[in-house]
């Protein structure tokens, strides 16, 4: 019961934050609504037993990436209301139809799928036993540093390329 209550709370926060983000005309309040949605999502991650990823969500997404966005909004002086930012009625209608169609398609898939879509009971028990034996971090570290070691190291290379690329792109051209 408690779980259902918190799930409903976080789900309403996430959905409301997302809608307010695309409806708000001020970029800074848009960003703050997105941060709210990300915090609510991290609460849902906790309810789904992904404790480590919930922490990473708050630190990396709501913390680092959103602050980066805020820096850029402030740096470019975009933090005031822009009415031209929202497209006209036709584009809004197209967005509404496309969004509803996408949501309806995926939700119908979820509601129609039977239990076998979400795997069997024994594999679920195996995952739970793994988490209980190794802890939330250990259970995630095991595949990350064994079978996915090469992609993990390549990620560091990707981040290095991103740093260098960001500096090269945002630097002022030499006169």
């Amino acid at each position: 019961m408690m779980e259902a209550f918190f799930f409903l709370l976080f789900a309403v926060m996430a959905a409301g934050g997302a809608i307010m983000m695309i409806a708000s005309r001020n970029p800074v309040s848009s960003l703050m609504y997105l941060v709210l949605a990300f915090f609510a999502l991290s609460g849902i991650f906790v309810l789904l037993d992904a404790h480590f990823l919930a922490a990473v969500q708050v630190i990396v997404y709501a913390g680092a990436i959103m602050v980066l966005f805020l820096f850029v909004i402030m740096l470019l002086n975009l933090g005031h209301r822009e009415d031209i930012d929202m497209r006209g009625h036709l584009a809004r209608l197209v967005a509404l139809v496309a969004g509803s169609a996408l949501f309806a398609a995926v939700a119908a898939l979820v509601l129609r799928g039977d239990e076998s879509t979400l795997a069997s009971e024994e594999s679920r028990l195996a995952v739970e036993a793994m988490v209980r034996a190794r802890g939330a971090v250990g259970a995630l570290a095991e595949p990350l540093f064994t079978s996915y070691l090469v992609p993990f190291e390549l990620t560091s290379l990707l981040l290095l390329v991103a740093i260098v690329g960001a500096i090269v792109l945002a630097r002022r051209r030499a006169p």
Binding site: A18, I22, M86, R87, A95, A98, G99, F103
Partner: peptide, 18 residues
């Protein structure tokens, strides 16, 4: 379903904002 909803809202946002 919440994930589908958030994805749809994101799509609508890409289409509607400049």
């Amino acid at each position: 379903i919440l994930s589908a909803f958030l994805f749809a809202v994101g799509t609508a946002g890409v289409l509607v904002r400049r």
